[in-house]
Amino acid sequence: MSAAITASPLRRKRDWPKHSIIWAFILIELFPLYMMFQVSFKDNASFIRQPWLPLWPGEWQWDNWVFAFKLIGPYLANTVFVAVTGTVASLFLAILAAYFFARHKLPFSGFLWSAFLILMLLPGVANIVPLFMLLKNMSLLNTLLALILVGVAGAQVFNIFVLRHFIEDLPKDLFEAAEMDGASHFQQVINIVIPMASPIIGTLAILAFLNKWNDFLLPLIILRDKELFTLGVGLIYLDGEYVKQWGQIMASYFLASIPLIIIFLFTMRLFVRGLSAGAIKG
């Protein structure tokens, strides 16, 4: 919007109805967050007495948070492990494969490319039952490795698709110069592709991380041991408790969000761009 319009006081005056509607939307949207935060400091008695307003900071029940940390802490560690390993591995493999497709046209590369693209049409739903049996036969049930492997496989198509076009657009001179100096393909990937493609890699990494953080169906189906639970399964079991301590539950929910909050604070720009770009391509 041009500066001339902003300057006009008349226009600014007419903006307030829009502002109030937007604020109404946003406040309702943020209301669950507010509830989560303030209830996390209450015990059931004070919550039932006064559900809406927060307690005075002096009366805050930090016990809830201690309980939540003890409960959720191991799940958090498992989820971070799965999400980080999975994200790194899937991006590394995708970069290599994208480099293969982008740099040279070798025999069968067209065929291989369509083999990847067809996967975009396969909806994941129909696969879940045979996937479970496959993991059972590979004796990967009840392991975190299974989550990582399936996650890596699932992320390949989209990442290769985006990265291939990005690598194709890199200046060709760079690769030729590197080849003159006797750099192998692997060295070219490490020294040229990864540094040059770092913005798109960052965006893809955030999307992959978010995806893994939000995943709960696969962990629910394959994990049995409490020590291996990821956040998803852990929270589902917490929800199944008979007598609910809302304060403890809300504190756990909040704790489950903290890693995402940290990432969000540091990578706000990538976050916003990654979400819109990912949505357009996806």
């Binding site: 669950p32 939000n214 969000s257 969000f264």
Partner: peptide, 15 residues
């Protein structure tokens, strides 16, 4: 608008 995204989907669901 992006702020609600920091809450895991599962947590949104339970809330």
């Amino acid at each position: 608008l992006v702020v609600p995204m920091i809450v895991p989907q599962l947590v949104t669901l339970f809330i």
